[in-house]
Simulated assay, not measured.
Amino acid sequence: MSTTTFPKVAAADVTPNRRRGGDLRVMLSPLTVGATSGFMGCGHLQPGEYVSEHYHPYSEEFLYVVRGTVTVRLDGMPVQVGPDEAIMVPINVRHRIENHTGEPAMVVFHLSPMAPRPDLGHVDCEELPGPGALPEVGGPA
């Protein structure tokens, strides 16, 4: 019988980050579980909330909607994504995630591959709406 343990992270155990908007929680990353190929987390958007526009110079982003409906703006073009639907955001495509409905939305996101340094992972395109520091995922320094 193996004595290997496999890391597990509960969303409730991750401090929410609101700097880019909404309630974002990086769950599996180099910092949390020693991931080397990407990172994953979840986001909660209340009605009227959004994640500010940004792009990733090195990573694709995969976004899956668990509940609710969000509008994902890809280079300004709106795409509605509902429950049990997913969308891929290609490298270098500006994107913004918005909740224009009257219901809360929950999304799961995964980015891969990792940028060579954490500070190169995201490029913000608009003023950040929330307080505090940016989320940390770790990785090569």
Rank of each mutant, 00 (worst) to 15 (best):
N92C: 02
F6R: 08
R19W: 05
V72E: 01
P129H: 04
L128I: 00
K8E: 12
R18Q: 12
G48W: 14
P83V: 07
A141Q: 15
S52N: 02
G48P: 11
P16T: 00
G130H: 06
F6V: 13
P118K: 13
A133Y: 14
P118M: 13
A141N: 13
V107L: 05
V89K: 04
I91K: 11
M88W: 01
S2M: 00
V93K: 03
V9R: 05
V9E: 00
P118Y: 12
G76P: 01
L111T: 07
V93C: 07
V72Y: 08
L111M: 02
D84L: 12
S52Q: 01
V33W: 03
P131R: 11
G21R: 04
G76C: 02
V51P: 04
T5D: 06
G132R: 04
T71P: 00
T101C: 11
V137I: 10
V72M: 09
G138F: 11
H44Y: 06
V72P: 07
P83Q: 11
D23E: 07
C42Q: 05
E127G: 14
V33T: 10
S112Y: 09
P104H: 12
P16Q: 07
H100C: 10
E127A: 15
Y58D: 02
G68T: 02
A141W: 11
N99E: 15
Y55Q: 00
F109G: 00
M40C: 13
G132N: 13
E136H: 02
L128T: 04
P30L: 14
V72K: 15
V26Y: 10
V14I: 13
E49V: 06
T69Q: 03
V51D: 05
P47H: 14
P116R: 09
V14D: 07
V107S: 04
A11E: 03
V108I: 15
M106I: 12
A105E: 00
D13C: 02
R73E: 09
P90C: 06
P140S: 15
E60Y: 12
Q80E: 14
R67V: 09
N92Y: 06
P90D: 05
E60H: 13
E49R: 07
L45N: 09
T36M: 08
A105S: 00
M106E: 05
N99W: 10
L28G: 04
H122N: 12
G48L: 08
A10N: 02
P16N: 04
T36P: 06
I87L: 05
M40T: 06
H44A: 08
G121S: 14
A86P: 03
V81G: 10
H110R: 12
P47Y: 13
G48I: 11
G102A: 14
L120R: 14
P135N: 13
T5G: 06
V26A: 12
Y55I: 00
D13R: 06
E61D: 05
E126Y: 00
P47I: 13
M40P: 03
V123H: 05
G21D: 04
R18F: 09
G130K: 08
P90L: 06
V137G: 03
L74F: 11
V137Y: 09
V51W: 05
P129K: 07
P47R: 15
V33A: 04
T32A: 14
D13L: 02
V14C: 07
G21L: 02
G34P: 14
V79G: 11
R20G: 08
D23H: 09
H100D: 15
P118F: 12
D84E: 09
Q80P: 11
V89M: 09
D75P: 01
D119L: 11
